[in-house]
Simulated scan of single mutants.
Amino acid sequence: MGFCNSCGQPIIKEDYGTNKDGSLNPDYCKDCFQDGEFTEPDITLQEMIVRKTKEMMEKNPDLAETQATGITAMFIPGLKRWNPEFQDDYKTL
C-alpha cells in the first residue's frame, strides 16, 4: 500500500488513478487523477490541507484540530503534486 501523491490518502491498486493512455498510475488515487489530469487542477495546497484535515477529524473524532492540521501541514507539502522537485514528473504522464 502506498499514498496518493496529491491528497495523501492510503491507496491500493484498486484506488489508482489513470494516465492518458488508460494505464494505472500508482502515484495518484482515482479521486485526484484521471485520464492523465488532476480532477481538481485549481485546488491549492492550502485547500487540500484544510480538506484532508476535516476528513481526518471526521474519521478520528478525538483528534484535536491542531493535531490534525499539524499532521496534514507536515505531510501533504512533501507529496509529488505539491513539491517543486517533482513538478515535471506529472506533466509527462
Rank of each mutant, 00 (worst) to 15 (best):
G2R: 11
G2C: 11
G2S: 13
F3R: 06
N5G: 13
C7T: 08
C7S: 07
G8F: 02
G8W: 03
Q9G: 10
Q9E: 14
Q9M: 12
I12D: 13
I12F: 11
I12Q: 12
K13A: 13
K13L: 11
D15A: 03
D15S: 07
D15V: 06
D15Y: 07
D15P: 15
G17D: 13
T18Q: 01
D21P: 15
G22P: 12
G22Y: 01
S23Q: 15
L24W: 11
N25R: 12
N25W: 10
P26N: 03
P26F: 00
D27W: 07
D27I: 01
Y28C: 14
Y28F: 15
C29F: 00
K30P: 10
K30M: 01
C32Y: 04
Q34H: 03
Q34T: 08
D35Q: 09
G36Q: 08
G36W: 05
E37P: 07
F38E: 05
F38Y: 05
T39Q: 14
E40K: 06
D42I: 02
T44K: 04
T44H: 03
L45N: 08
L45T: 06
L45F: 05
Q46S: 05
E47H: 05
E47C: 04
E47W: 03
E47I: 04
M48S: 04
I49N: 07
I49M: 09
K52V: 02
T53A: 03
K54T: 15
K54C: 13
K54Q: 14
K54R: 13
K54N: 15
K54D: 15
M56Q: 04
M56N: 08
M56P: 12
K59H: 13
K59W: 12
K59R: 15
P61I: 05
P61S: 07
L63G: 09
L63W: 03
A64I: 03
E65H: 02
E65Y: 03
E65D: 06
E65M: 04
T66R: 06
Q67V: 12
T69M: 11
I71K: 07
F75Q: 08
F75W: 08
I76T: 02
G78T: 10
G78Q: 11
G78H: 09
G78C: 06
K80Q: 11
N83C: 11
F86P: 15
F86Q: 13
Q87T: 00
D89F: 06
Y90G: 12
K91H: 04
T92K: 12
T92C: 10
T92Y: 10
L93G: 07
